[in-house]
């Protein structure tokens, strides 16, 4: 059963001579509980796919279905209860003047939860931060701690599908290891589905079951991790990418 099905997705920005077709005819599906990776160079449209799914890139055509229900131009409230996103840069994705408590509390409030207090505590525990971080502001947190807050915020509405846009590329390797372990644990505990964008093939190889290789807005190849490890890519570009990352 597929959690997310994307069929012939096109996304574009601008118009006339400055029109850029960021994604061209992308087709893939992500199974329930699967972890699916999107890799490719910058500008290849991998983040744009995530943005189109959540509605942050309004100019798109094609068909997307979430859990069997088609995604329209206007997304209902339930959509955001099912899908949440973690952004690349924890320095830019948290409000600098909102404390961790406000960030999480507001999200919970918007999603109509009543027991906000207990949920905030629980969320902080789940991402390994604990109570003492509850009333801190982003500038009092390290990069890894901020990314944990961003993950907690994404988990607040109890989503089934998490879109991860380069969740560790702004972090140190030692902190990256912690965050990747956290994401793996959360997925095990909650049966989450991940759609993860990364330019680091070894990170995707560690986290994902299958991956799609993108180039110039097109998906050139979909392969599973066993094939990736065995260096069994068929498309020339994926081969280059594999060689470059070893």
């Amino acid at each position: 059963m597929s959690m997310l099905d994307v069929n012939g997705l096109n996304v574009w920005f601008g118009k006339n001579r400055d029109r850029v077709d960021a994604v061209k005819g992308a087709t893939f599906d992500v199974g329930q509980g699967e972890s699916f990776g999107l890799v490719g160079e910058s500008g290849s449209g991998k983040s744009t796919i995530l943005r189109a799914i959540t509605g942050l890139a309004p100019n798109w055509s094609g068909a997307m279905t979430l859990d069997g229900k088609p995604i329209g131009k206007k997304r209902p409230k339930e959509f955001f209860k099912t899908v949440q996103m973690v952004f690349q840069d924890p320095y830019a994705s948290l409000h600098p003047r909102h404390s961790v408590d406000q960030v999480l509390g507001e999200t919970l409030h918007l999603h109509g939860f009543k027991d906000i207090d207990t949920r905030v505590v629980k969320l902080l525990d789940d991402v390994g931060l604990g109570q003492k971080f509850r009333f801190r502001y982003p500038h009092q947190l390290s990069g890894g701690q901020r990314q944990r807050v961003a993950i907690a915020r994404a988990l607040a509405p109890e989503p089934e599908l998490l879109l991860l846009d380069e969740p560790t590329s702004a972090l140190d390797v030692s902190v990256q290891a912690e965050i990747l372990n956290l994401l793996a644990d959360l997925r095990n505990d909650r049966g989450l589905t991940y759609l993860m964008v990364s330019h680091d093939l070894s990170v995707v190889g560690h986290m994902c079951d299958r991956l799609a290789v993108m180039k110039d807005g097109e998906i050139v190849e979909i392969l599973d991790v066993a094939a990736l490890r065995a260096m069994n890519a068929t498309h020339t570009y994926s081969k280059q990418l594999l060689e470059a990352s070893l």
Binding site: Q176, A177, N181, L246
Partner: peptide, 20 residues
């Protein structure tokens, strides 16, 4: 050594990464 070991590697898959 700790930094080197915390990197995920394609050729040597592990369930959990080592934390420094």
């Amino acid at each position: 050594r700790g930094l080197l070991n915390s990197l995920p590697r394609l050729d040597a898959p592990r369930d959990r990464l080592e934390v420094l």
